[in-house]
Design a protein around this nucleic acid. Structure first.
Lengths: 218, 218
DNA sequence: GGAATAGTGTCTATGAGACAGTATGAA
DNA sequence: TTCATACTGTCTCATAGACACTATTCC
């Protein structure tokens, strides 16, 4: 018998660092330890594993319909003491505003320097973080960590925190210009203490766009 | 009950085009139709799904230990008429020399313009081809389509056939130089009809290296 | 006016594409 | 000698990083 589950790596940017949502396990194995939100696939209920991931995420964290993408499938005889198991892992990105509004039972920990998690979940988180960092260098992925409207300064800061390196301002804005994936929100201005900043939003026709690389600053 | 299988997309470069290895199904469903080599995970025998993929590939095609990488996991209630199923797909690359030496029962078809395959295997092949093409723009992946020793001309031709676009010779050689992933085989020269060409091999310390993008020619 | 942040103009360095050149074998 | 293919030198153009500059708010 093969155990078939989905696990979700729900990431957000909180206090200027990437954080992951974790739950305390209420049952054996690893009772009391931290683990990713996850659960069995329900063949009667779930059309596919993405639907299962969405259902599990909603049930365990109350988060509906963030950006969700299949990461990798972890499977072996050894990863679960109950037996041969398959975990189809999905990663999800949300803005901390969307995450933190509500009552919750989960914990939010920085992805760098996590304690020991259940199963092979440290490995799973590491792979998710690596994927997000890599993909952020050539796509609009980090936008999903921001609320619907944001300034270009916030956008740059988000890229910098995800990538872990400062970016060149002029160069970054040239890229954003060239990619044409955001548009100014007419009349929406954010007061920032200095010159007020124009608010932007993702263009409605854009979901996730892929490009050639952005590079770093000194 | 969830059906758990692995499928392997075995790709090679043959007659200057990417080809995929397919088998005729001997059992229902899709009896007599073309399908990717695949099979059930054997929990008693396979340590993990990569091992299962390797075992299935060897059993069904006689190919041992090519480059093998997890592609994606296809899973839904609908993709297999027998019920809810999960297929962990792996893609593999071999040189046509390694592939064609032996007796075989499989068929080799160009990946562009495939006929209808069993299950969702057309979709799986498409995703594999896309992955290989994408990854080839920034990695040494196409090397696995070549025999152990090759000329820089053959290397460039391989990249061109995989990417489907001509490349600039000077620029390509600069890249190969900069990446430092091949080394000349001392005294190994290939006669090509013109000036003889130096034979190269992958440097022993290199497995798969990733880089920033190679671009096209006019 | 000064501090703070938004946003821009422009110089320079790097690296890719173009293209023509040289090198070395076979017929 | 001519042809074919291997391999190289160098020009140009595109783009990213550096950095200083202007703009607009609050205090």
């Amino acid at each position: 018998m093969i155990i078939t589950t989905v696990d979700i790596i729900l990431l957000t940017l909180y206090q200027e660092r990437l954080h992951v949502v974790l739950l305390r396990r209420e049952q054996e194995p690893y009772k009391g330890a931290l683990a990713l939100p996850g659960g069995y696939i329900h063949p009667e209920e779930d059309d596919d594993s993405m639907a299962a991931a969405r259902r599990v995420l909603l049930a365990k964290t109350g988060i509906a319909a963030p950006y969700l993408e299949q990461l990798y499938t972890f499977s072996s005889a050894a990863r679960d003491p109950r037996g041969w198991s398959v975990s189809i892992a999905y990663y999800a990105l949300v803005s901390s505003q969307d995450l933190l509004g509500q009552e919750h039972r989960w914990e939010l920990l920085p992805v760098d320097g996590l304690p020991d998690l259940s199963f092979d979940h440290n490995k799973i988180v590491d792979r998710a973080v690596k994927r997000v960092r890599d993909k952020s260098t050539y796509s609009t992925l980090p936008c999903y960590l921001l609320p619907a409207e944001f300034t270009l300064g916030e956008l740059q800061k988000t890229y910098e925190k995800v990538l872990g390196a400062p970016l060149n301002k002029a160069s970054f804005r040239r890229k954003v210009d060239a990619w044409e994936f955001v548009e100014p929100v007419a009349g929406a201005i954010k007061l920032t203490g200095g010159k007020p900043a124009q608010l932007y939003q993702i263009r409605p026709d854009q979901s996730l766009a892929l490009f050639s690389r952005t590079v770093r600053d000194a």
